[in-house]
Design a binder for these strands. Structure first.
Lengths: 134, 134
DNA sequence: ATTGACCCTGTAGTCGGCTACGGGGTGTAG
DNA sequence: CTACACCCCGTAGCCGACTACAGGGTCAAT
């Protein structure tokens, strides 16, 4: 199925201008055009934009998102090269997961210690947030 | 121990201007002042700023960071109230962890499938990134 | 007493990531 | 065949989060 930019934007949950912006920035590929000049997208574009959205919510910059997506196809580099870049990204990601888990644990502690009655002054303070992390 | 803004900034790995900016935005508390007007911080400030830094790298906006930190002490709300806000944040965080784990799994698959030899063209493509996640 | 590193309060500028025009062409439904 | 939603390009504006002055005061060492 081939879609116009407006449809893709709606499906991915972003604005039309954002899609064009991503194209300019090289985060998504330049799509083929109709005779009229209209961009023509496939479903892959929607997935890609959805991924960009999620990755940004996880604290990756557009540049980093591009690097992640560039781990897919790049005829000019060797597989070993890609592998090492992928491993570096894996490190980043595991780091993030670890930090999120520490925050999760701290919040769980807060929720558990605070049984839902009484003023907040009686609740234990969430110092756990301040600790841990390389 | 009491520190000046410059020391705190260095210890937390940010600029002096950033610390003042956080104060203006209400993300960190206004510290007491010396007679000279100099701000005087304790070690808690350093922890707090480090936390802000990490949380931002995890995709939280300053406003969200403030909300997380405000789950500590707030004499005007009940414990139950705090508990429900904490639970909402827990949801966010678990969501993020889930998405990071999906990316992690996809990268692991890429690394595993690609044994380090041959051109990238022979490597499986990382479509896993496009799937999963509501 | 002076010097140089550091602090103060403004206010203005930058950068990433969109978002919103303005002025025009396209496409399809009635 | 025209109306109206949608597309094109280009440029400008906006918001969040800093970052950098300018013009002045402070403090510790020499």
């Amino acid at each position: 199925m081939r879609w116009t930019i407006g449809k893709v934007a709606r499906l991915a949950g972003v604005g039309v201008e954002t899609v064009r912006f991503y194209e300019r920035e090289g985060v998504i590929e330049k799509p083929p055009r109709r005779l009229s000049g209209y961009r023509e997208y496939s479903s892959a574009a929607v997935s890609r934009i959805r991924f960009i959205k999620k990755a940004k919510q996880l604290g990756f910059s557009l540049k980093e998102v591009k690097e992640l997506l560039d781990l897919r196809v790049d005829p000019s580099t060797t597989c070993g090269e890609v592998r090492s870049r992928a491993n570096a990204k894996l490190e980043d990601i595991r780091q993030k997961i670890g930090e999120l888990k520490r925050i999760e644990a701290a919040l769980e502690k807060l929720v558990a210690a605070c049984k839902g009655k009484g003023p907040i002054g009686e609740c234990p303070i969430l110092d756990a947030l301040d600790n841990g992390g390389r």
